[in-house]
């Protein structure tokens, strides 16, 4: 995964609360291998009519070039399906700005280079206001955790460890392998002090 420090793109407003992961990608598409691409499934049932055609009035449909999604509280609540993040990434989204995110979604996002940028209520209202007329240019900086839209410079919140991970494009498995001695030692000790924590032999 490639790291990134700043992103310049277009922000689009999706003024809906609690966009859960079932909406981000309906379950019926989840047997698809990742290599096939998930972008077309993003928000499938919200974006498309019963026949599968894109609804012209849905915000994202008029702005396929948008790479930053501005939405409301509870984004990514629900299921742990990382496919929800794949759908966003494959559709070209690099950052989502919202007042709150589902915990598992946020962690999945960071593991795939997608920024879950949390903003307070006032900042959120300002950004929503700036996007009332339609999509607008935005610049996102992980270094100082800021968003720039025209003359506006606004802060967002992100765990420092996550900011670093996004910037470096770190993969946790590589990092963890450096701790192999600690892990092996821990497992040995746990096996001695709590042997019951291993599955019992079947009778």
């Amino acid at each position: 995964m490639a790291g990134w420090t700043t992103h310049q793109g277009q922000a689009v407003l999706l003024p809906l609360a609690n966009i859960d992961t079932d909406q981000l990608i309906p379950a019926r598409f989840m047997s698809t291998p990742r290599s096939a691409g998930y972008g077309d499934y993003l928000l499938y049932d919200l974006r498309r009519d019963a026949g599968g055609a894109l609804r012209p009035d849905f915000p994202l449909n008029g702005t396929p070039q948008a790479s930053v999604l501005v939405t409301r509280r509870g984004f990514g609540s629900g299921s742990s399906r990382e496919a929800a993040v794949y759908a966003l990434i494959d559709a070209g989204i690099r950052a989502v700005i919202a007042p709150s995110f589902g915990d598992i979604f946020a962690s999945n996002a960071v593991n795939n280079g997608l920024l879950p940028a949390r903003v307070d209520a006032q900042t959120h209202a300002t950004i929503e206001g700036a996007l009332q007329a339609g999509a607008a240019d935005i610049s996102v900086s992980l270094q100082d955790k800021s968003l720039r839209m025209g003359d506006l410079v606004l802060p967002f919140q992100l765990d420092d460890a996550w900011a670093l991970k996004l910037q470096n494009g770190w993969d946790d498995i590589d990092l963890t392998q450096h701790h192999k001695t600690d892990i092996d030692g821990f497992a040995r000790q746990r096996h001695q002090t709590a042997p019951w924590a291993w599955p019992a032999a079947m009778d």
Binding site: I104, D172, Q177
Partner: peptide, 21 residues
């Protein structure tokens, strides 16, 4: 619950990174 990247991490290392809630 964990996502797929974390599933791969647990499969590979039997450990998980997590900030204490």
């Amino acid at each position: 619950g964990i996502g797929a990247t974390e599933v791969a991490h647990v499969l590979a290392t039997q450990t998980i990174w997590q900030r204490k809630p």
